[in-house]
């Protein structure tokens, strides 16, 4: 396994307090921009069911899942509201030259 930085999109393509879906190979990710202009990445699917978190609502550092209102902290991946119980996997995220990059294993 070889960790690599992958370009996602221009940073300003993600609104403040919002999330976008990013598919790479077989995997899907959710890339967040918080109200404090911080960027984070987690697995794209909720851990409760196969639902894209990118359709959910970002509130500060919290992402609320669009299906059953389960919540996660998008910085730590921690599940903070049921029915979400299992934490999300998180990925290192950086901004370089105005673009968002995430580090994933290839």
């Amino acid at each position: 396994m070889n960790p690599q930085w992958i370009e996602v999109c221009a940073a300003d393509e993600i609104d403040l307090e919002d999330v976008v879906r990013f598919d790479h190979g077989e995997k899907t990710f959710a890339v967040y921009r918080t109200d404090k202009d911080e960027f984070y990445t987690t697995d794209g699917f909720c851990t409760h069911a196969q639902v894209h978190l990118a359709d959910g609502l970002v509130m500060g550092e919290i992402i609320e899942c669009p299906k059953h209102n389960g919540r996660f902290n998008c910085a730590s991946g921690q599940a903070i509201r049921k029915p979400a119980i299992v934490p999300l996997k998180t990925y290192p995220t950086k901004i370089e030259n105005g673009n968002v990059y995430i580090e994933i294993e290839l």
Binding site: H48, A49, K67, H68, K82, P83
Partner: peptide
């Protein structure tokens, strides 16, 4: 019932 209602939505 929290879980029941989640199932109802699923």
């Amino acid at each position: 019932w929290r879980w029941s209602h989640a199932r109802h939505h699923t």
